[in-house]
Design a protein around this nucleic acid. Sequence first.
DNA 1: ATTAGCACTCACTCCACTCGAGTGCTAAAT
DNA 2: ATTTAGCACTCGAGTGGAGTGAGTGCTAAT
Lengths: 349, 349
Amino acid sequence: MLTPRQQMILSAIVENYVRSAEPVGSRTLSKNQDFHLSPATIRNEMADLEELGFLDQPHTSAGRIPSQKGYRYYVDNLQPSLDLDSSAVRALRELFRQRMDEMERVVQQTSIVLSHLTQYTAIVLGPQVNNEKIHHIQLIPIGHNKAVAILVTDTGRVSNRQVQLSDDISSEEVARMVELMNHRLHGVPMTRLKSSVYRELATEMASTLEHYEDAISLLDEFGRVPGEDSGRVYVGGAMQMLDQPEFRDVDKVRPLLEMLEKAESSGLQRVVTVDGPGIQVRIGMENDNPTLQDCTVISAAYTAGGQPVGSLGIIGPTRMNYGRVIQILDMVSQALTVAMNERMHGNSG
Amino acid sequence: MLTPRQQMILSAIVENYVRSAEPVGSRTLSKNQDFHLSPATIRNEMADLEELGFLDQPHTSAGRIPSQKGYRYYVDNLQPSLDLDSSAVRALRELFRQRMDEMERVVQQTSIVLSHLTQYTAIVLGPQVNNEKIHHIQLIPIGHNKAVAILVTDTGRVSNRQVQLSDDISSEEVARMVELMNHRLHGVPMTRLKSSVYRELATEMASTLEHYEDAISLLDEFGRVPGEDSGRVYVGGAMQMLDQPEFRDVDKVRPLLEMLEKAESSGLQRVVTVDGPGIQVRIGMENDNPTLQDCTVISAAYTAGGQPVGSLGIIGPTRMNYGRVIQILDMVSQALTVAMNERMHGNSG
DNA sequence: ATTAGCACTCACTCCACTCGAGTGCTAAAT
DNA sequence: ATTTAGCACTCGAGTGGAGTGAGTGCTAAT
């Protein structure tokens, strides 16, 4: 489709523009010793590339910048395969190996590290472990008719809720209630808590327990929120956006920053979620979200036990250093996968 | 110190400037029907006020703006006492009365509500309950030598940690360990966990338990982090900053937004912490933090059981609507105090 | 003590002008 | 048939002066 020379020129334009953030002219490229061509020749090629839709021209007498189609072509066909810096990988693994007591911490830390490494804004989705199973339920009374209900999953995640018990419930009945729930719910996937098991257990409890509504409301509580920090969105280095020349205008960044601020409620999950394996690159309009029409989102999944459980991504202007970001994202997603699996290891009973 | 007429003029300048964000001229004030004075007279007064340091002049032929000293005088002496809108109070109380399962949620929600109400950025410090006592400790084994340790306080707060047990520890010994810890630690304030009690208990356990180092490391874990969300900082409406004309320049907002982004590590706690009761107003340089030299921080404490346990504040430009913000902050801090006490109520055993 | 009048200041806007990087086209050179 | 040199053209960015208007300070009259 494109001649080798056209490819060279497109590639050079992308790389130049990514570096300088300014339209690239024919003379600049001509001085590039790699191809010995006069500016005029390059101009002709550029005119062709523009006609084909790979380049844009901000105005008549400016240089060329890559169009979204141009970036896409570059990413798909022209990107130099960088050999990944194995020392960086090792440093990164080391970082994750550090004692991070909470899974939440691991994920949050990742978003910060990722944004530091790339110099762009990073988004990490907390692990969405949906094959998590109930391991243990406990009720600890505190004061007058109040209790803390605690639910531990097989992965070691702990949820807790404060519950109000009926006035006239006896401690024996509470004990029976907890025993019954543990008996029936051990090993049951969290996802089924509110649906099938719920009804079954409800009828059984109704017949054996006096205050079964207490138990029901308790289970309701746990079922309502799928899990505190699963599904959470961590944004690292949001203010990196301000360093990008294309976003130096307050009116241009505001919608982006607002989106990042209200991460959970602005559908940011969708933005970085990936379908398949590998690295996904969404350039400009390829993002469904209209706020991101001048941005590129590069994202990857991380897995636990072979299953994808979350994803992480980078947001920046379409003028992004694709090669570098892809390389780093690849590295970090692998490191995070390893860290995840180390945490999970041996917890599946 | 200031004549009544000077006060009137200063007051009018502050209020005008807060509204318009533009220097106030003598003609503008003259048209204000309240005082029947010619522009010339007002000019003379303004010249005096400037000499006294209450007003600044951006450049020779511009109107006047309040200096930081001017704002301070206004806040201390001239501020009209607004009668607080009782319907708004009721609406707010209602909002807090809604079932918010986690204390964290309450606080986070407050930061959002507060920023909506004021149209400025809000900061809320999570409750720092330091007279919390240990209520119950529990160890739930999951899989191979791993366990989840759970600590419940008398206020119903739950902390949990994953711990690794020694290979050859028996379940009986684990049970004895937990029993011993519960026996000795029930009712002990969290703050003493790492100091006095620690040593006492350590020696006792060393003599009665074989694997006492497991227990020690467990208590260490709980003692290390004072409590997950106590001391946390919640920032609401950070992007409100972008709506302020004085921060429309990216270079001006960047430091502020970066500070808000790294809330926990940038010493934001200090910024909104208040010493005494009542509302605290820090104008410009009165803030220790140099990043805030053009900002005003208005903050208040909220209490639980009579003790101040946290604080909440508003950050905006020095050109701030002091009256409104103080009123709202007063309202919200009271509502939050009520909400806190409702949650705590009856849990002190 | 207040005000009218007036000269003065200064940011802001508009406009004409230049500068230069870059283009497209044509004709010559390879 | 390519490639290149040459040239006229375009257009954004930067410059500098004129004009405008909001605002001031000072002085003299009320």
